[in-house]
Each structure stands twice: as C-alpha cells, then as structure tokens.
Simulated scan of single mutants.
Amino acid sequence: MTESYPVPRDDAQLVVFDFDHTLYDGDSGSHLFAWLIRRNPLRMLAAVLITPLFGPLVALLPTRRFGISGYVWIATFGLHRAREFNGIIDQYVRAHEPAIRARLLPRALDVFAAHRRAGDRVVVATGAPPELARAILAFVAHQDVPVVGSEVGPRLGAMGATRHCHNEEKMRMLRERGYGAIAIAYSDSTADLPLLRAAQAPVVVNPKHSRVAYFRRVLPAGTRILNWGCAERGGEPA
C-alpha cells in the first residue's frame, strides 16, 4: 500500500535534497540525453564529431555546463516545446523503469521518507529537468514532493536550459519559490556549497573521494559525510 504522509505545518523545518548521486545513483539527466542520442544514428554521428571539442569542456567544472549543452542540443534537436520534451521524458522513464528503480538508493529513500513521516517540509532541488526527477520519484510514491529543477525551453531548433538550477542559482530559485531558512540539506556536490552552507545542518552524501578532504575544510566541524550506497563514491558507510 502507498504510505501517506502528514501535511507539513507552516512552521515545520525545511529539508532540501539534491537528486543526482544523492537519491539516485548517477546523473539522471546524462542518462536521459545519452538515450536520446543513442536511439538515432545521425545523433550518434553528431555526438562523435563534437566530442574532440566538447568532451574536454565537460571534464572541467568551469566549462562543464557549456560542454554539456552541446550534447543536449544534439539529443533534443527537433523538439520545440517544453510539453514535447516532458512527453519524451515520461516515455524514457516508462521504458527504463527497472533500470531506473535499481538506481534509486534505498538508504537515501529511507531518510527521505523519515523526514516526510516527521512532518518536515521536504523539497528536491536538482540540476536535472524537474519532470525527470518527479517521474522517477513517482516510482516510490513521492511524486507529490515539490521539485525545483533546471528550466528548459526552445533554443536554436532544440531544447536547452533557460535557467540552470545550479550553485548560487539553486539558492535563488528556492528563495523565489518561498523557501526560507533551511534546517537540513543533503548533497554530494561542491557545486551545492551555497546550499550546504545555508543549512543549519549540512550533510554530505556520496561525495567523490577526491572531494572529501575539501568538504571537511570548508564545512563546519562535525559535518556528516556519508555514503548511501554509491559504490564508486566516498563517505562513511551509513
């Protein structure tokens, strides 16, 4: 049976979860766009041709967004409306349900559900398209949780991020939607340092091994750094 959760009170504490590598083992947006590219030989060829230029850009944090945008453009060329794109997302999620379910992290979902049972105000803030996160969360009966994600619209004959829910912009998008003081924030990424620093109790989950020491330096002493089941990631087993 589907579990029901109490409606959070107006004064309930706010808990913010990142999505990729936090609730989901991997980068959900990259999986979607890779599927879109692979299913069309011309898109595959185009992706191969741009990789010498765009591949190195993806590898570096300052240029990653620009590098990814090239692949997103190839993956979505011919789509002209957000509604079309959301329909493709729903098609992808339905077609890959077993694989996607397997990537949802049980320990993370336990913590997620525990906050909801406690009556906390829970929101997901992700760089992925919000429709993608919502569709995946629907598999585990959390489709009613608010999702703040990257806004997508038409761009040069394809779809692109008109506003990327990332770094400081993620905080601005949360504030614009009425989310104020953050009690607890969960994320894997140094890109979410503004979110983690804004939280009374930041929790780092599934960080890259190479970033663990950095998180310990820049976040308050005693900040928990946990691993919720991402085998290739760092953090203390939870």
Results as ranks from 00 to 15, higher is better:
residue 115 H to I: 04
residue 37 I to Q: 08
residue 224 R to S: 14
residue 236 E to D: 12
residue 85 F to C: 04
residue 16 V to C: 01
residue 100 I to T: 04
residue 90 D to W: 06
residue 164 H to V: 07
residue 154 P to W: 08
residue 27 D to V: 08
residue 146 P to N: 05
residue 165 C to V: 12
residue 141 A to M: 01
residue 146 P to F: 07
residue 29 G to S: 15
residue 55 G to D: 10
residue 220 P to F: 12
residue 202 P to M: 13
residue 140 V to H: 11
residue 167 N to S: 14
residue 5 Y to C: 07
residue 44 M to A: 09
residue 93 V to G: 00
residue 47 A to L: 02
residue 188 D to S: 11
residue 218 V to S: 08
residue 65 R to V: 14
residue 115 H to D: 09
residue 88 I to K: 14
residue 2 T to N: 13
residue 79 L to W: 10
residue 198 A to P: 00
residue 100 I to P: 03
residue 177 R to G: 10
residue 96 H to V: 06
residue 168 E to R: 12
residue 181 A to F: 01
residue 8 P to H: 00
residue 142 H to C: 13
residue 126 T to R: 06
residue 91 Q to D: 14
residue 24 Y to W: 08
residue 98 P to F: 04
residue 42 L to C: 01
residue 25 D to F: 00
residue 128 A to P: 03
residue 139 F to G: 02
residue 155 R to I: 12
residue 138 A to P: 05
residue 115 H to F: 12
residue 180 G to V: 07
residue 62 P to R: 11
residue 22 T to Q: 05
residue 4 S to E: 14
residue 110 D to K: 06
residue 114 A to E: 15
residue 135 A to E: 12
residue 83 R to A: 15
residue 48 V to L: 15
residue 214 Y to M: 09
residue 37 I to F: 09
residue 48 V to E: 02
residue 86 N to C: 03
residue 173 M to W: 08
residue 123 V to L: 13
residue 209 H to T: 08
residue 236 E to H: 08
residue 116 R to G: 02
